[in-house]
Design a protein around this nucleic acid. Sequence first.
DNA 1: TTCAAGACTGCAAACAGTTGCACTAAACCT
DNA 2: AGGTTTAGTGCAACTGTTTGCAGTCTTGAA
Lengths: 317, 317
Amino acid sequence: MTVTIRDVARASGVHVSTVSRTFSAPHMVNAATRTRVLTVAEELGYRPNRAARALTTGRTHNLGLIVADIANPFFPPLIKAAHAAARQRDYHLFVADTDEEPAAEEELVQAFSKQVDGVVLCSPRSSNKALERLAERVPFVVINRRLRGAATVLMDVGHGAKLAVEHLAGLGHRRVALVSGPAGSWTSSEIRTAAEQVPGVDLVVVGPNAPTERGGFAAAARVRDAGVTGVLAYNDLVAIGLIEGLGDLGLSVPEDVSVVGIDDIVSGRLNRPKLTTVAMPTAAAGRLAVDLLIQEVTATTTLETRLVIRDSTAAPR
Amino acid sequence: MTVTIRDVARASGVHVSTVSRTFSAPHMVNAATRTRVLTVAEELGYRPNRAARALTTGRTHNLGLIVADIANPFFPPLIKAAHAAARQRDYHLFVADTDEEPAAEEELVQAFSKQVDGVVLCSPRSSNKALERLAERVPFVVINRRLRGAATVLMDVGHGAKLAVEHLAGLGHRRVALVSGPAGSWTSSEIRTAAEQVPGVDLVVVGPNAPTERGGFAAAARVRDAGVTGVLAYNDLVAIGLIEGLGDLGLSVPEDVSVVGIDDIVSGRLNRPKLTTVAMPTAAAGRLAVDLLIQEVTATTTLETRLVIRDSTAAPR
DNA sequence: TTCAAGACTGCAAACAGTTGCACTAAACCT
DNA sequence: AGGTTTAGTGCAACTGTTTGCAGTCTTGAA
């Protein structure tokens, strides 16, 4: 029922190898034969079977993409860009979600290994050792995690955090809270060390917190008690939750306290007040990651971040 | 370099067929042999090659998922749920994005066809004829589109729209605008016909509009001029954009006009005012769609929607 | 003790392609 | 004219697994 290369060969009076070549090495076959085979193939509705092709060539033309949580608004633009880049080069993209479980990462990479030419891992939480083990099974590139020997694309969140704190300092804030995320992520430590280096502001760390709206909401009281006039939040969701929490405590943003988030998710732009935030080049990262994978280059690239000033920051009273 | 079934066979002193069976039909092989093969396989790090398996069995254990726009906040929860359901049954999921181009749908299904056991198509925009043609190539289930002969999962957005308009009527609104989406989608017409049936309210249609925040923003002036006190928007993004646009025109929500959205995306909950909306069971739809696909049942299921009343609706002045 | 029935296991032919090698004919040199 | 290159095509082996068929070896029953 499914039409194979042999059917096309028979119908166009050539050997299967010729049919094969008209698809995978067109220049090796006579123009006349080629068009004949092509039209016959078209008539029959033949499409090469990629799985079978993969068996001999070893290349599947598939890529894997593993993220912590598909529904976290940080990821969809990255996934979309990765898909577009893959599609452009005729690759297909498996997408998987670890549900924030580090163990699932290894599991998924293993499961993908025979079926993809490479995988991109976003902000992996597995140990270096585990990642090195995986690197032997399948090429991969990691996003937002420094890893020796692997292709890497980093978003310079440290610089962004610095810009954010400098922005607050410039407005006159002298004491700012860092509402941190979960302990132990690369992003988390980047933000902290960068923020601490800004001269003229006292940084007080409030956390760790869940990297969600609820996490931010729950941190509101501690932020109030910290006696700060400015806040840098781990990400936009935390910032939005925090703003709501502060509101419930009778503090308004930006009048009583300025808040800046990180990521620049759409909800931040839609929020009232519109969120000042550090824009992360997620789409660029996704695109770049698949390009690196396909071209098999192992480089480490750092993407710029920038500060987007909106309505959640102002001079302190 | 990659370890195959033959390596395992050699190392454990049995024939390849026995190794094959220990994985795909364990009951057919002696317990002792089985454990021996299993331990050898483990030591060697053997994993069956799914592509090769697919070649003989015809089943790839892969599924495709095609959506209009991965970055549209409506889809990620659906994708996530679909992924979870697939994963649970040891299926992998290709995800693809048509970028709102109807032509890409057919293209993508074709490309997937040999590589998946089925595909789920979300809100397809292709013609019935095109979809029937595709149905011959690969089993699929469609979400949010009525299609004879194909497995279908529908979200009862019509009923949701009716509830929304009834809610507005109940608050005392007599003239409400339907800020519609793009022309010709199934959802769009469902909403309209249902909304029109609510007695006691005059419905005026404003549209079509792009199904985005910008679309809603751009429709603000026309809504003001329509002389309505209540609005049902095509989706939450449109509602949020509209609220902002109305704000710029000096109208506040819900004091001057009530707005209800559709979808219940997270941004709506985060918005100020918090958006009253029709919650769509996207996760359930995603999960169900892959279950139907895997079990190869062709049924048409309609999922309930419900009204979530928050702060963007109130009695008219 | 013999025979039939199981339980295991091996053999080999698929599955749908790719590719190194050999072969034929035509085209090009000198 | 004879030799050499070149373009185009066919042959057959190979990729990693599955599976119908057949063979061997135990067991249990008569």
